[in-house]
Amino acid sequence: MKVLLEAVFSPTFAASILRVTTPILFATLGAVVADLAGVVNIALEGMMLVSAFTGVAVSAFTGSAWIGLICGVAVASALGLLLGYFHLKLRTNIILAGIALNLLATEGTVFLLYIVAHDKGVSSSLASKVIPDWQIPIIKDIPVLGAMVGKQNALTYLSLLAVGVVYLFLYKTPLGLRLRAVGENPDAADSVGISVHKVQFIALAISGALAGMGGAHLSMGYVSWFSRNMTSGRGFIALAAEALGRRHPVGGFIASLFFGLADALSNYMQSLRVPGEFVQMIPYLLTLFALAVYSGRQMKTRRSFK
């Protein structure tokens, strides 16, 4: 127990939480943007995966992690547009189209991996690049805080920055206002001359780009290669985090931080002989607990309005 407490209260544990949170946070923000525009993006998982692959492949061929990142994000964003095309132009059910994209991404990335790396499992034969760690000049010298947030992957900082940017975009810009209007009531938005489809296309593209950042972090920040299906459900966890965070960027941030905390905790507890099965339950248990507390509080406020 003492060892666990020591580990949990060490600043590196906080660093670990931020690292685990990064991909989920990006995807959660992507989920928020799409959902507010009234187009549920269930293909986040597939978009992350495609971006993770593209990032690795492009960075290996160009020698630049940043070009890899840009290409990964661009491809994920294009997938968002494709989802929009299926749903808005061809009128398919968006959930079904999303599932199809996820399946396509799972197997398609393996197929492409085989073409570029002659390997169906991992891309370790490609000399791909990683997004560098950044150091924050003054903060890194502060004793505890420095170890927590002083040196992290560039994408981790960008994910934190993205929370603010997405918030400002959604609530302080005209396009954000239109986007929310379209999600709230498309007919009303249409009646005041907003092109509903255009706004939804934009929302899906942004959503894809954000998911793409998360995917790129997995393969070019977290680890240094692409492996098949490496997202392992993070895109879906993001959908849960989005719901838990009440479709709000800041709420989503707190929810994904919460998932990150649970996950990091489970990683630390495992090595201390807490039964593995119990540890695997922790993230989900904590989620259920949080949902219960949250809905309990909501009921209370509703009652007090009566």
């Binding site: 670990s16 680890v223 290669w225 996950d263 990091a264 990683n267 630390y268 090595s271």
Partner: peptide, 13 residues
């Protein structure tokens, strides 16, 4: 097939 989680666990170790 979850190398990211494995990495995190080993970093903890």
């Amino acid at each position: 097939a979850n190398p990211a989680k494995a990495k995190e666990m080993c970093l903890a170790q």
